[in-house]
Amino acid sequence: MNASTLRRLLPVAILLVGLAIFLLLGLERYFSYEMLARHKATLTAWVAAHRVLAAIAFMLVYAVMVAFSLPVAIVATPVGGFLFGTWPGAFLSVVGATAGSIAVFLAARYAFRDLFRARAGTRLARFEEGFRTDDFSYLLSLRLVPIFPFWLVNIVPALLGMRLRRYVPATMLGIAPAAVVYSSVGSGLGLVLKRGEQPDLGIVFEWRILLPLMGLAALSLVPVIYRQLRRKRET
């Protein structure tokens, strides 16, 4: 492996090493609802006294969680709703998650895109061309319905040549609805923790929530379907 390849792999290696250290040291225990219940009075008092600093810190921590694909990121949005309220918490979560996603996107593109294209050859070129024509709509639909792992949806657009300037707004718009749902769950987190319970994060997969998200995802694909039908008529 030459020096150029090592340099390309370095960003991804850093993210993977960070994830490994987090898991090996068992640091997830510090990002649990039990820990929040234990320290919620101190934490809420600090947030109330330093709201701007707390908001910046929250976004930075969220970005790190997403960038390193830490298995505790799903806890962050409800906590944001608990600390800042539904709408501010959702906004801060979207910004933090998007920042972390950008780090993964850039690392994957820098490390693997050329290798991926070299291995896939002409087959990828044809698929990539089709994806890039409607990449915004495709990514938006994938973000709206949280079926695929978040880290995977961060990586695939990078390998298929999506532009960062399109990736960012599609990510922000796509994750916003679920962020509002999770943040609203977190806004009532104080009472839930007081009862010694944990919030139901599976709420996003209930039909009353999932159906509207699926509807939005379907609407986001309308331009794709329209363009494909127009091409067929023209050929």
Score class of each variant (00 low, 15 high):
3 A>I: 01
67 A>S: 08
191 L>N: 12
117 R>H: 13
26 G>Y: 09
73 A>S: 15
15 L>Y: 01
59 M>T: 12
14 I>A: 14
93 S>F: 10
111 A>G: 08
78 P>T: 06
88 P>F: 04
43 L>D: 00
209 I>D: 01
196 G>V: 09
105 F>T: 10
35 M>E: 15
97 A>P: 01
152 L>H: 03
112 F>D: 00
83 L>V: 05
223 P>V: 07
147 I>Q: 03
140 L>I: 08
97 A>K: 03
52 V>C: 00
83 L>E: 11
192 V>M: 12
94 V>D: 05
167 Y>I: 01
4 S>H: 08
189 L>G: 04
40 K>F: 14
212 P>A: 11
212 P>Y: 01
50 H>G: 00
184 S>H: 10
205 F>V: 06
33 Y>H: 13
185 V>M: 08
2 N>K: 14
92 L>M: 05
38 R>N: 04
1 M>G: 14
215 G>C: 12
9 L>I: 00
141 S>C: 13
118 A>G: 03
14 I>F: 07
122 T>Q: 04
148 F>G: 05
31 F>S: 09
5 T>D: 10
116 F>D: 02
127 F>M: 10
127 F>Q: 07
53 L>D: 10
94 V>E: 07
54 A>C: 07
77 T>E: 08
88 P>W: 13
185 V>S: 06
204 V>S: 13
86 T>D: 09
152 L>V: 15
61 V>Y: 11
146 P>G: 11
34 E>R: 13
19 L>C: 02
157 P>V: 10
18 G>C: 04
53 L>M: 02
171 T>Q: 05
227 R>F: 13
151 W>S: 14
177 P>Y: 04
212 P>K: 07
190 G>N: 05
125 A>T: 11
180 V>D: 07
125 A>R: 08
165 R>S: 11
81 G>L: 11
123 R>M: 11
182 Y>C: 02
28 E>F: 01
95 V>I: 15
169 P>C: 14
214 M>R: 04
223 P>D: 13
172 M>D: 00
1 M>V: 04
118 A>N: 04
69 S>L: 02
132 R>I: 08
152 L>M: 15
140 L>C: 09
199 P>M: 12
58 F>G: 06
158 A>Y: 08
64 V>I: 12
87 W>L: 15
41 A>E: 15
91 F>I: 15
67 A>L: 03
51 R>W: 07
91 F>C: 13
7 R>T: 09
115 L>G: 12
13 A>R: 01
15 L>P: 02
114 D>L: 12
107 A>Q: 02
106 L>W: 03
102 I>H: 08
66 V>C: 00
108 A>I: 00
122 T>E: 15
182 Y>Q: 04
80 G>C: 05
68 F>I: 08
70 L>R: 03
127 F>L: 14
210 L>M: 13
70 L>G: 02
233 R>G: 03
